[in-house]
């Protein structure tokens, strides 16, 4: 029944589709709550996780998850109710994690790991095991999103109003951090640690142009993600580009087209 999964191209397509399905809602929430940079930070620091995982002879994804969770736990201790995460703190964590990770990985005996695949993703090398962990994590995240959607949107609009009207803002925020850590751990395989945030931000920004409601923005950004995925996999296949970067460039081309077309057709669209 799953013979078609033996084809690496099908596995890549499925992995990409799953990623788009979860990147759209998570990306929107992260953009609304100004957490896109946190995604980037966890992505960069994930290299450290990969190094640690390999040193302890674990699967890299567990190392990544462990490092991401340690970071979000620490951040939730230092961030106060009113203050967003400080850019400086995030930049320090991000680059220390990346630098430390690269050194760790270079200490390992050379054939164990392909640094390029970690940094930029290797969608075409997706295994059945990768697919399964991607699928399970995505289903878990989608269920959490569905269950807490109203609270997530309310916190995105105003933390004060949400808290005064009975939403436990700190708990919602902490849950969001944990979910971002999970997201980064699974998206790493597809996009590579350096490019994760691109898939959370670029389709979302294109979608904003046409959206009148939060849910609409999630759906439209899913469509943009889909188109970027299609463009990326196709160009990767035809021109032998790396898939992750090809997807990002497709997303950016779509964003530019959208901006140009809307300026020309409807200059007063806000």
């Amino acid at each position: 029944m799953t013979e078609w999964l033996d084809d690496f191209l099908w596995r890549a397509v499925i992995a990409g589709l799953i990623m788009v399905a979860i990147a759209a809602p998570m990306g929107c929430l992260m953009v609304w709550q100004r957490l896109a940079f946190l995604g980037d930070t966890l992505g960069h620091a994930a290299v450290m996780g990969v190094g640690l995982g390999l040193m302890l002879q674990l699967k890299p994804i567990f190392g990544v998850l462990a490092v991401a969770l340690v970071i979000v736990f620490s951040l939730s201790r230092v961030s106060s109710f009113n203050n967003a995460l400080s850019e400086t703190t995030l930049a320090i964590i991000s680059h220390t994690g990346l630098a430390g990770g690269i050194i760790l990985v270079s200490l390992l005996p050379s054939p164990t790991v392909n640094l390029e695949a970690i940094l930029f993703g290797d969608l075409l090398a997706t295994t059945k095991g990768d697919l399964l962990s991607l699928l399970l994590t995505t289903v878990l995240l989608l269920l959490l999103l569905r269950h807490h959607w109203r609270a997530f949107v309310a916190v995105s609009v105003s933390r004060e109003i949400a808290q005064a009207e009975g939403i436990e803002v700190r708990r919602v925020q902490f849950l969001m951090y944990i979910m971002i850590a999970l997201l980064v751990a699974v998206m790493m395989k597809v996009m590579g640690v350096l490019l994760i945030a691109a898939m959370l931000v670029i389709p979302t920004t294109s979608a904003r142009v046409f959206s009148r409601s939060p849910e609409q923005m999630v759906c439209i950004s899913g469509l943009y993600g889909l188109a970027a995925l299609g463009g990326g996999i196709t160009s990767s296949f035809h021109f032998d580009w790396q898939t992750g970067p090809a997807i990002v460039i497709s997303a950016t081309v779509l964003l530019l087209l959208t901006l140009v077309v809307t300026r020309v057709v409807k200059p007063d669209l806000d």
Binding site: V31, V157, E165, R208, S213, P214
Partner: peptide
């Protein structure tokens, strides 16, 4: 039951939100 109007509300421009939806935020 408390209704609250904070001193400052800054709605992120990246968030599409109608007035109607704003009223349905928490209930």
């Amino acid at each position: 039951r408390i209704g609250y109007l904070p001193q400052k509300v800054y709605v992120n421009r990246l968030m599409p939100l109608s007035v109607e939806r704003m009223l349905r935020l928490t209930r």
